[in-house]
Design a binder for these strands. Structure first.
Length: 585
RNA sequence: GCCCUCGUAGCUCAGGGGAUAGAGCACCGGUUUCCUAAACCGGGUGUCGGAGGUUCGAAUCCUCCCGAGGGCGCCA
C-alpha cells in the first residue's frame, strides 16, 4: 500500500476519486492513531469494517469498541463515544467523511461525503462495459472443466445445472482478469460405450431384418419390448432408434455382417456429440477444448502415475489388482486403481488428467461435480498432491442434484432407461434465458427443485423477466429521449441526485465490482443473480419516484446518467450470467 | 455402521459472528391524463430443526441428537 497524502484543505479536491477501499484505509489510519492514544490494544486485535445493513446507519461501520470492551473493562458504548470524540478532534477530512455516529450496542458509523457516491458513479459511467472487471487474476490461467458427460445420450436437466454453473464460473473468473479455458472431458471407450454400440446395432438389425424376434424386458411399468438381440442394460432412448435408422438409410442392410460394433459406436458417438454441442451452443456455451480420456493412455501419463505412486509406496499389488493406499489419507479402505482384468478404474485416469491440467500450466483448475462425486475427488487430490503437484490449485464445486417434478411426482432420471427430460426440451418449454437463470439463482449447494409445470406457467413472472424488463425500460426511455430531441449533457452535475431513491440506487450500482469479485472468489454465481434483482428493485423505485424527461435540463441529464449507469450494470451483470439484455419486451 | 451436504415465513430460497433475520411466489386491497401495469404502493407471518457450549454478541462457530438427500464397488 502506498501512502496517499490526504489534502488538508477540504473542498479543493472535490474531483478526487475515492474508492470504498481507499476510504476504509483512510479510516483505518485515523482509527489507529486514536486507539494508540487510548492505550494498548490486545495483540490479536484487528480493525473490522462492514457496510451496515440499514442505510440509516451510514455507509461503513466499525465494531472496534465492541471488540475492545472486555480488554478495556469498559462499556462498549462508552468506548465508542470516546473514539468518536477523539476522531472528530483529529480532524477528519470532511471532503471524505461527513459524519461519525455511535449507535446500537457501540458501533461507530461513518457517513461518506456526497462526493464519494458521485465520484464512484462517474467512474462507473467512464468504465462502462468494463465496469465490474478487475485484475485479481491477471496474468494467471484458469481451466474450468464441466459437463464432461460421456457421449451416451442427450444432455438432461441434470447436466444443465452443471453446464450453466461451469460456464458462468468461467465467465466470472474471466471478469476477474483470469485467462480462462473451458474444457469438456470425456471417455469414449469402456463398458458404457460398448453397451451403447450394441444397443444401436440391435435396433439396426431389427430394421434391416424385420423378421427378427422380440423380447420383453423390465417389469411393471418399466416393461418394454425390444429386439431379440438387445443387450442387457441396453440404452432405450428414441435417439438410439434414430441413429440406427439413419445408418440403415445410408447403408441398407450391408452392415448386418459387420465384424464388430465399431461402425455403430462411431456413428452413435458422432451423432450424440453433435447433439450435445448443439444443445450447449443453444445455452450460449462454447467449449475451448474437448479432452479425450484416451489421450492419457496414448501419452503414457496413466502408467506414469501408477509407477510414481509405486515408488512412493502408495500403490501396491494385491489379488491381481493394483491398489491405491487411500488409508494413508484417512480413508477406511484402500482403493483399486487397476482391476485384475488389467482395466484401470476411472480414478486412475482422473489423477492423470488432473496432473495433466497442472502440467499444462494452469494456476487454477476448477471442476464442476455432482454431489455423487463428493466422496471420490479427495482421492484424486491426494493422488495429485503425492505426485508432487500443488493440489490447492484444484478447486471442486459440488452441486446438489436437480429434482425434477412433473405434476406432483418426482421423475426418476436414468439415461439408459430413457426416463429423463432433455435440456433441449426444457429450453423449448421455458426458453434459454429462464433455463440459465433458474440454474443460477440458487446456491449450487442446495437441492434444486424444478417443477416443469411451474416453470412453464411462471415464465411470465419469472425473476429473469423482471431484470430484463428493467433493462428494456431504460432503453425505452432512451428511445423516448430521442423522439423528443432530449439534450443530454454527459457531464451533468451528479450531486443533483439527492433523492433517496437516487442515492440508494447509486449505492446499489457501485456494489457491482465487489459483488463480481466475491462471486468469482467463492465460485458462487447466485450472488450475481440476487444482486441484479436488488439493482432492478432499486431502479424500479427510482423510476417510480423520479421522472427524467421533462425535468429541468440539468437534473434531467443527471438522472439520465443514472439510468445509463443502471443499464450498464444490468447489461454487464446479465452478460456475466449469459442471459440476454433485450432492448424492448 | 462410517463420511459429505442440507434443515430459515404457507411454498421456493437469500443471509454464514454483529444493530429490528430478508426476498420472490402465494393471499388481500389500492395505483395508468405520466419515459413500458411483464410495473408500483400498502397489508404479516418466523421456537432460524432440537439441546448444550464458545463469545461482549450465534441463524452464522464447536459438540451431540433428530429429520431429508447423497456417497461408502475390481461401476463412472
Amino acid at each position: 500500500m502506498h501512502d496517499i497524502p490526504w489534502p488538508a484543505w477540504p473542498g479543493f479536491f472535490v474531483r478526487v476519486r475515492t474508492s470504498r477501499l481507499e476510504m476504509q484505509e483512510y479510516l483505518e489510519q485515523q482509527l489507529r492513531i486514536v486507539l494508540d492514544g487510548m492505550g494498548d490494544s490486545p495483540p490479536a486485535f484487528r480493525l473490522e469494517f462492514q457496510p451496515p445493513a440499514n442505510p440509516e446507519h451510514g455507509d461503513l461501520a466499525c465494531n472496534a469498541a465492541l471488540q475492545l470492551a472486555r480488554h478495556f473493562r469498559r462499556a462498549p458504548r462508552q468506548i465508542a463515544e470516546e473514539i468518536a470524540e477523539r476522531l472528530r478532534a483529529l480532524p477528519i477530512d470532511s471532503s471524505r467523511i461527513e459524519g461519525i455516529d455511535v449507535a446500537g450496542p457501540g458501533f461507530l458509523n461513518f457517513r461518506f461525503a456526497a462526493n464519494y457516491l458521485t465520484s464512484e458513479l462517474r467512474e462507473l459511467l467512464d468504465r462502462s462495459e468494463d465496469f465490474g472487471r478487475s485484475n485479481a487474476g491477471s496474468g494467471k490461467k484458469a481451466l474450468v472443466e464441466f459437463v464432461s458427460a460421456n457421449p451416451t445420450g442427450p444432455l438432461t436437466v441434470g447436466h444443465g445445472r452443471n453446464a450453466v454453473l461451469g460456464d458462468t464460473i468461467a465467465s466470472l473468473l474471466s471478469w476477474s482478469g483470469w485467462e480462462v479455458s473451458r474444457e469438456y472431458y470425456f471417455n469414449d471407450a469402456g463398458r458404457q460405450m460398448r453397451i451403447l454400440a450394441a444397443s444401436v446395432r440391435s435396433r439396426y438389425t431389427a430394421l434391416a431384418n424385420p423378421s427378427m424376434g422380440t423380447k420383453t424386458i423390465g417389469s411393471g411399468e418399466d416393461k418394454t419390448t425390444v429386439p431379440e438381440s438387445f443387450p442387457e442394460d441396453g440404452y432405450l432412448g428414441d435417439y438410439i432408434v434414430e441413429i440406427a435408422r439413419s445408418l440403415f438409410d445410408e447403408h441398407g442392410a450391408s452392415l448386418l455382417d459387420a465384424d464388430d460394433d465399431t461402425v455403430f459406436k462411431t456413428s452413435a458417438e458422432k451423432c450424440i456429440f453433435e447433439g450435445i454441442v448443439r444443445t450447449l451452443a443453444r445455452l450460449g456455451i462454447l467449449m475451448d477444448t474437448f479432452f479425450n480420456e484416451k489421450s492419457l493412455y496414448d501419452s503414457g501419463r496413466v502408467w506414469d502415475v501408477v509407477e510414481k505412486l509405486r515408488e512412493k509406496g502408495l500403490a501396491y499389488d494385491h489379488e491381481g489388482a493394483v491398489w491405491f493406499k487411500t488409508t494413508e489419507f484417512g480413508k477406511d479402505k484402500d482403493t483399486v486403481l487397476i482391476k485384475s482384468t488389467g482395466e484401470p478404474t476411472y480414478r486412475l485416469p482422473d489423477i492423470g488428467y488432473h496432473v495433466d491440467k497442472l502440467e499444462r500450466g494452469f494456476d487454477l483448475a476448477v471442476d464442476i461435480f455432482g454431489a455423487d462425486h463428493i466422496a471420490t475427488f479427495p482421492d484424486v487430490l491426494n493422488g495429485v498432491e503425492s505426485l508432487g503437484y500443488d493440489s490447492d490449485k484444484i478447486d471442486v464445486v459440488i452441486y446438489q442434484f436437480v429434482t425434477l417434478i412433473r405434476g406432483n411426482e418426482p421423475v426418476k432420471m436414468s439415461t439408459r432407461k430413457a426416463q429423463y427430460v432433455t435440456l433441449d426440451e426444457l429450453m423449448d418449454e421455458v426458453g434459454e434465458d429462464v433455463t440459465r437463470f433458474f440454474f443460477l439463482m440458487r446456491s449450487s449447494n442446495t437441492h434444486l427443485e424444478f417443477d416443469l409445470k411451474l416453470a412453464r406457467e411462471a415464465s411470465e413472472k419469472n425473476p429473469v423477466f423482471y431484470l430484463q424488463y428493467a433493462h428494456a425500460r431504460i432503453c425505452s426511455i432512451l428511445r423516448k429521449a430521442e423522439e423528443v430531441s432530449f439534450e443530454f449533457d454527459a457531464q451533468a452535475d451528479l450531486t443533483l441526485l439527492s433523492h433517496e431513491a437516487e442515492s440508494s440506487l447509486i449505492k446499489e450500482l457501485i456494489r457491482f465490482p465487489q459483488t463480481v469479485s466475491r462471486a468469482a472468489e467463492t465460485r458462487e454465481p447466485h450472488r450475481i443473480a440476487n444482486y441484479l434483482r436488488d439493482v432492478a428493485v432499486a431502479f424500479t423505485q427510482f423510476y417510480g419516484h423520479c421522472r427524467i424527461i421533462g425535468e429541468s435540463s440539468e437534473l434531467a441529464s443527471a438522472r439520465m446518467s443514472l439510468a445509463l449507469a443502471t443499464r450498464i450494470v444490468l447489461k454487464n451483470g446479465l452478460s456475466v450470467l449469459g442471459i440476454s439484455a433485450p432492448d424492448r419486451m
